[in-house]
Amino acid sequence: MTDVSPKGRPFLEVKDLKIHFPTDDGVVRSVDGLNFTLERGKTLGIVGESGSGKSVTSLGIMGLYNKSNSKMSGEIWLDGQELVSSGAETVRKLRGNDMAMIFQDPLSAMHPYYSIGKQIVEAYRVHHNVSKQVARKHAVDMLGRVGIPQPDRRVDDYPHQFSGGMRQRAMIAMALVNDPELLIADEPTTALDVTVQAQILDLMHDLQSEFNSALIVITHDLGVVAELADDVLVMYGGRCIEYADATTIFDKPEHPYTWGLLGSMPRMDRPNIDRLVPIPGLPPSLINLPTGCSFHPRCQYEPRTGGLGSTTMPELSRAGGSKHLVRCHIPTEERQRIWSEEVKPKLEA
């Protein structure tokens, strides 16, 4: 993927990122060699089941792991600055200011004892040397911009007094209050009901264009990705198994796991709920990954690899579309054939 950058560094570049956690039972390899880039104004969707390493990736970029209980290697370049080797204080100053994060469950992610306004004010004042009054005005402003009615009154409410959607709006306001260039949204809509999900996604889309920030959306829900992402990175077992632009991922996905994700994706246009087929089996243990392709125990096409699947880890290699990368032993043509002849018809039936 490094080849996508013609000259100079992209705004965000992640190179061979590894995040390991030593435990008593062994080393948990949550992220094991991840590469991607992202430009301002663009959105990257990172997709995968829980335990695939997608959230760890985002927290790793934010520098939220403690060096005492985790091991991080590789490089993260944010606007020309390398973060993995930077000191904790350097990263802290970037955090919330240059890069901000929206968390999954705003109820548990916001402090229950402080008012919304106070929490936003706090976020602003860490990075701006202004009075509380100024910060508060700013907070009210932000709340208004994320679509909270009567922000000057609701600013003093506590998280539990907000509805789920309002809370997520507030969370977004808090993340955007410092006008960050990189915004990471970790499952931003999972805790919300469907109609509110759509509103929040619209809001994020609008705000991103307004702020021209780079956005990483972490989700297990391809629907969200379809709504927001320019590029999509599918993670499995701590590694990238498919990478492409969004159109390619939805039209010509080549990895069996991506097919599975598409199959389990609920869609407004498809009322047949029984089409929802979860991928059989469980996500792999990150301590003892299966030998060979991490996905092979759950892969129904594994027999077609001629035994390679259980012995060798496939390389992430170029596939059909432009900048399309897939980690699979099955040859590209065969994958394209399976998709168009066996999988796609079933999904659209």
């Binding site: 939220l64 802290r92 955090r95 968390f103 402090h111 706090e122």
Partner: peptide, 24 residues
């Protein structure tokens, strides 16, 4: 989670510990 949020905001560790952690 809210401790993680506090850190994500870039708060100093002492503020995270006292204002967010100890308070709760």
């Amino acid at each position: 989670d809210y401790i993680r949020t506090a850190r994500a905001k870039g708060l100093r560790e002492r503020d995270v510990n006292v204002k967010h952690g100890l308070r709760a």
